[in-house]
């Protein structure tokens, strides 16, 4: 189990790093094409935009791992350890439910996009590109849930 989680972490990291590298190279190539060969490559800009979505969501997944999401965090800093634990548990489980819902409905939506053969750009169907939404939200929900349980039982654990 632990091996599997580690493997998943490494996979996320590598995909993210590779996406960023690919983004820099593709954007650079597009500029070259435009200034030297006189015209751009029409599929690069829309592809770059999809990569922004992917990088953003995978980055968010990463932030979930280390609990680094933007938050206000007032009560837990003023209260004692018990209040802190209660607040952590509730907010983490809340986040888990929200992510779970977004993931669930996104999954339904991607199915719909598949049925309708929604096109993203050029001839590329939209659904594989959109699949990242239910995937990341589902996994974020799972992580928040595990963290919430860990907070409730007083154990520190990362998933």
């Amino acid at each position: 189990m632990k091996r599997l989680v580690q493997w998943l972490h490494r996979l996320e990291d590598s995909v993210l790093v590779l996406l960023l590298l690919a983004m820099i190279l593709l954007a650079g190539y597009d500029i070259l094409a435009r200034s030297i060969f006189g015209g751009g490559v029409s599929w690069i800009p829309p592809l770059l935009r999809v990569m922004v979505l992917w990088i953003g969501l995978l980055g968010a997944l990463l932030a979930t791992r280390s609990r680094e999401h933007i938050s206000i965090d007032l009560i837990s800093r003023l209260g004692g350890p018990t209040l802190n634990r209660i607040a952590s548990t509730i907010t983490l489980l809340f986040a888990a439910v929200v992510c779970g819902l977004v993931g669930w409905f996104s999954g339904q939506y991607v199915q719909l996009a598949f049925e309708y053969q929604d096109i993203a750009f050029a001839d590329i169907p939209a659904w594989p590109l959109q699949l990242i939404i239910p995937f990341t939200f589902g996994l974020m929900g799972l992580r928040f849930f595990i963290q919430g349980i860990a907070a409730a039982t007083g154990k520190e654990q990362t998933a």
């Binding site: 990291d13 922004v52 990088i55 953003g56 969501l57 968010a60 932030a63």
Partner: peptide, 20 residues
């Protein structure tokens, strides 16, 4: 380098998620 890339994209993720 991969560490810097990873850290910076964590920030991008946190921001873009809120934006989304």
């Amino acid at each position: 380098l991969p560490v810097v890339m990873r850290d910076s994209m964590k920030l991008v993720g946190a921001i873009l998620l809120i934006l989304a």
